[in-house]
Design a binder for these strands. Structure first.
Lengths: 360, 360
DNA sequence: TTGTAAGCGTTATCAG
DNA sequence: CTGATAACGCTTACAA
């Protein structure tokens, strides 16, 4: 009941000045010279009454709501989305702003309805987020409103966007394996030719090439991007002769499947085969055994970067120059799935495949 | 730039009536009789101009913002939180409301700052969410504001809350195993005596008791609530004589560890041992092999229930009667980790433990 | 150095 | 049936 009760009028009365003066001192309006005496009285009164300006009234007057929204296709349903929100929220708070969150579930009608509601509330801008790295098209309702795209690029070249630096990520994965001494590598990529798949493969192969021509054996194969896909690809790539000693997986979930394949083939990780994942997905990368070395996706950073850029946009009412597009690099998370290739990693040294045990 | 541009004034002018009339017809104010002619003219004008009322102005006048907030300790960083948000958002949209999301990260200062910002914006109410089932104390700043606690109970008996129905969940888990024919069971519980641990154990044991005294062998042991804890407990409980044929795990992550233990002991799931998890955690329950039979937590439903209750509270300015507290039951998700106990599940039928293979 | 008054875009009261 | 007018709580020319 007792919400933002006390108003500027009451403060003014208590301090024995006009509301104008209260506004001036509380907002520290430049160019206004106010006696330190009244200034003190105002502060005292405001303090004593526990005054907090009504943001709606202020926004109505100033045409700035100090409110942004993050709208995404699955912004509330994926494990990564939370970190984008967090990054955005942290910078928003620094600007005394607060953030609406809208999950559209890929339904354009819901999206339209929600954006409508947001616009009525005079939000200052929007962070348009995608669950996975792709190219998005902004809904028409957003045109004219400061907008930054997160974890995706945008068909409209004028709007700023930020994505992970996939190529560098792929290169980092290669480096981890190469540094550990591996020379027979495989990359189990996503069958879908999404930007992440394309970028990671390019980076991975380029790093190998840069390492020295003919130095490294590399196989690239593709599969569905889940544990099941990883499992089958793992069976395939690890089951044959001249199997790789280091495997880079498109994501941690596929790596999970490769783990299973390795176990069933009687191969130990990392002794017999080293694995590198991608995403650093909670509960997976740190939950499977051995814990997975992987490349983290910079979700928090993307959220923060995008929010910063958004506030810039909001402040400078005019879009100045070309929209900045950025790719952020995630760190390598070193865990226990990578080791130097073992001496005995020739076929003769293999363990008995697990699925043969019963028949032995 | 072209935001919520057109105002009620312009509509009035276009329709040749006063703003009052426009407001009356657009809001369908009861008790006002307006000729269907002007009514039509107003609608037409509003339509043609694409008029959408400014929510801030309206809120300022009506003292209702049609805006709620969901503030939680880790509302943005856990895989479940998203579903709470989703449930809340869906019912909010039905009330033309939109939701702020605030993640406090357990920091009371951040919480206070954010709530301050929210109150200034005249939010109508708050969903106070916890990441895990516990008892929370509301921050003082929230007193007086309609509030519903989600996924936790509350020290203040006057505030409504909703939690999962842990006891029923435990009983459901027992039923799954019992129905499949298992008579030697184990429950690997969380060492922390949190409400979830207490409730699930009670339900599990009660169901077993109800099944018939002396009918079922049951062991309860505890461990850290992650994969590592599950692994060690799994080794312990599955490694000895008279091992259980059905294991219920406090959560899916622990079940993950038990899977690993089973594999290392040469036990197949579900042939040699059946496993039931809890949480139905994305990417785990459906990602491990075999996929895990588990009890789902009703996060979406809790979010939706809480939001519904919140809007009730907001509408009925006075708290009527005792605050309703509810426990919601999650469904059993049947997958592939449960089967009838095999005939040959005596020690003699075991496979060679995997960790002995190397020495064989 | 401070105050008056207009205005942000609505809705509510009351009169015509 | 319809329309002035005040008010919601604040900021900001402009005056004093």
């Amino acid at each position: 009941m007792a919400q933002s009760r006390v108003t500027i009028k009451e403060v003014a009365a208590a301090a024995g000045v006009s509301t104008t003066t209260v506004s001036h001192v509380l907002n520290d309006v430049p160019g206004k010279r106010i006696s330190s005496d009244t200034r003190a009285r105002v502060f005292a009164a405001a303090d004593r009454l526990g005054y907090a300006p009504n943001a709606l009234a202020r926004s109505l007057r100033t045409q700035r709501s100090n409110t942004i929204a993050i709208v995404g296709d699955e912004i509330a349903t994926t494990p990564f989305a939370g970190k984008i929100i967090l990054g955005a929220q942290d910078v928003a708070l620094r600007r005394d702003s607060v953030v609406f969150v809208v999950n559209t579930g890929y339904r354009r009608d819901v999206e339209a309805r929600e954006i409508e509601e947001l616009l009525r509330r005079q939000i200052d801008g929007v962070l348009y987020a995608s669950m996975y790295h792709r190219e998005v098209e902004l809904p028409p309702a957003l045109s004219g409103l400061p907008t930054v795209v997160v974890n995706a690029s945008c068909t409209d070249e004028r709007v700023p966007w930020v994505t992970p630096e996939e190529v560098a990520g792929g290169a980092d994965a290669a480096a981890v394996l190469l540094d550990a001494g591996h020379r027979r590598l495989a990359f189990i990529n996503d069958v879908d030719p999404v930007p992440a798949a394309i970028g990671r493969e390019r980076g991975f192969l380029r790093a190998i090439e840069d390492f020295g021509p003919g130095q490294v054996d590399v196989t690239v194969l593709t599969a569905e991007s889940g544990p099941e896909g990883g499992y089958h690809a793992g069976l395939q790539v690890l089951g044959g002769e001249g199997r790789p000693t280091g495997v880079f997986c498109f994501n941690d979930r596929m790596a999970m499947g490769v783990y299973r394949a390795a176990y069933e083939l009687g191969l130990r990780i990392p002794t017999d085969v080293s694995i590198v994942g991608f995403d650093n997905q909670d509960f997976i990368a740190d939950g499977i055994a051995p814990s997975l070395t992987t490349i983290e996706l910079p979700h928090y950073e993307m959220g923060a970067w995008a929010a910063d850029r958004l506030f810039d946009l909001i402040a400078a009412n005019a879009p100045e120059g070309a929209a900045p597009h950025t790719r952020l690099r995630g760190p390598v998370i070193h865990r226990n799935s990578v080791a130097p290739p073992s001496q005995a990693s020739s076929p003769g040294g293999w363990h008995q495949p697990a699925d043969r045990r019963g028949n032995a």
